[in-house]
């Protein structure tokens, strides 16, 4: 990737659906996509931490993305999907309803969210991506674990 002229390079996003809304993350942060397994509950953690699962011998924390984003009354189910992300050398999973597509997007199509929204969404959504017929919320995954000291050491 060319750091000098990011505007010129299209970026790739993994888009997914959650509670009827469309979201996406930078594909560079995605390590793998897994089916749902019942995690082991972790006492003493915030409500959006589902627990931990065994990812080939390592202990992987799973965040309930819907709860984390404040989308109420949306439960994970057997049909949920776990997207494993690595951000700032930390690996964790987020639960989504379904993975949709890999999108190649021109950076020009990505806009910062309007003023005031940022505050409300605690910075989880860093930008909006306008495609033909839909608007995709671009998540900034690092905020998921750093905001409110979520998984901060």
């Amino acid at each position: 990737m060319n750091q000098d002229s990011p505007a010129m390079n299209p970026i790739e996003l993994l888009s997914f659906g959650l509670a009827g809304q469309a979201y996406a993350v930078d594909i560079m942060a995605v390590r793998e996509i897994r089916g749902w397994v019942e995690p082991t509950a972790l006492p003493g953690t915030p409500d959006y931490v589902c627990g931990v699962i065994n990812l080939r011998g390592t202990v992987l924390p799973i965040l309930n993305l819907a709860t984390r984003l404040g989308l109420e009354a949306h439960q994970v189910s057997d049909r949920s999907v776990v997207i494993v992300l690595t951000v700032a050398s930390r690996t964790f999973g987020i639960t989504v309803d379904a993975v949709s597509d890999i999108l190649t997007v021109d950076p020009a199509a990505i806009q910062p969210p309007p003023d005031g929204v940022q505050e409300h969404s605690k910075g989880f959504v860093s930008a909006l991506c306008l495609l033909d017929d839909q608007m995709i919320r671009l998540l900034s995954p690092d905020t998921l674990i750093t905001q409110d000291g979520a998984l901060a050491a």
């Binding site: 019942e38 006492p43 003493g44 953690t45 627990g51 065994n54 011998g57 202990v59 000291g149 998984l151």
Partner: peptide
């Protein structure tokens, strides 16, 4: 080890993987 010691109940020291692959 639990990754980076994220905030959990103080009495949870670590984790292990059981015979059935669960933690």
């Amino acid at each position: 080890g639990l990754q980076d010691g994220f905030a959990t109940h103080p009495c949870i020291a670590a984790a292990t993987i059981l015979g059935d692959g669960r933690i």
